[in-house]
């Protein structure tokens, strides 16, 4: 299932063609004095699914939070579609086309499912298009359609995850940042979620995916980066990563 998902995109191994969709160059970031990432460089090309894998505390979420503007890097550059975004406020980055479905789902528990979804399209104004997209994501996630009136907090874990992804899509992003979409979900649900991720990518959205479930992530992604204590330890195609000793031992749990 994974191979077909990404075969449409021509491979570009050169680390950092100037045309890169998203590009991080020596980015250092974290909370206060504690730097969770220490000089990360990576790039994502248009149409790709790229996986960031690594252990807890390797800096995966910090990387995403820095890209989406929740954290400000203390060094390095981030550019998106050729524009510098490392000094842009989070709410303006959404407007530029990056949408971030954060770790732990982070849906608004006291807002209804519908309100959550509409918030995803907060910065957009074209009403008809928003309604269209609403229809589209509800088709993508039929479970949510049954629950549009319910408060977000009453949803199950899997439903909340669907809501978080659906909400991120409501921004009509060109780049989607997904943080641990499989966390805490049953294997069946994980399968569903990842199938949807592939669908989203096929529909034209570039995806940067953070996962602890490396097996799953590397099935979906075309390329991947392995992060270790805040730095890129390895960068390769998904197939190569799956075959590499480091990944097999550390993240795939193979002997």
């Amino acid at each position: 299932m994974s191979g077909e998902a990404t075969s449409a995109v021509a491979p570009s191994a050169s680390a950092g063609a100037p045309s890169a969709h998203l590009r991080l160059d020596g980015v250092v970031s974290g909370y206060g004095q504690i730097k969770a990432i220490k000089g990360i460089s990576l790039h994502v090309e248009t149409g790709e699914v790229v996986a960031l894998i690594g252990a807890n505390g390797a800096g995966k979420s910090t990387t995403l939070r820095t890209i989406s503007g929740l954290l400000r890097p203390s060094a390095g550059e981030i550019s998106f579609e050729g524009k510098r975004i490392d000094r842009v406020a989070a709410h303006d980055i959404v407007r530029m086309g990056i949408s971030h479905a954060p770790e732990g789902r982070a849906i608004f528990g006291r807002l209804s499912v519908l309100e959550n979804l509409r918030l995803g399209a907060y910065q957009r104004n074209a009403r008809a298009e928003i309604e269209q997209d609403l229809e589209r994501v509800l088709t993508l996630f039929p479970r949510l359609r049954e629950r549009v009136k319910q408060d977000g907090g009453t949803l199950s874990g899997g439903e909340q995850q669907m809501l978080a992804i659906a909400r991120a899509l409501m921004a009509r992003p060109r780049l989607l940042l997904l943080d641990e979409p499989s966390m805490g979900l049953s294997p069946v649900l994980v399968e569903t979620i990842f199938r949807t991720v592939i669908e989203i990518n096929r529909a034209g959205t570039t995806i940067l995916l953070v996962e602890q479930n490396a097996a799953m992530a590397l099935q979906v992604a075309r390329r991947g980066y392995v992060l270790e204590s805040g730095a890129v330890a390895l960068e390769a195609s998904a197939a190569e990563l799956r075959a590499s000793d480091l990944v097999r031992k550390t993240y795939l749990g193979e002997a």
Partner: peptide, 12 residues
Amino acid sequence: EPADVLEPEVAT
């Protein structure tokens, strides 16, 4: 001193 060192998250 600024609290963000000790309290990175306001809420998650």
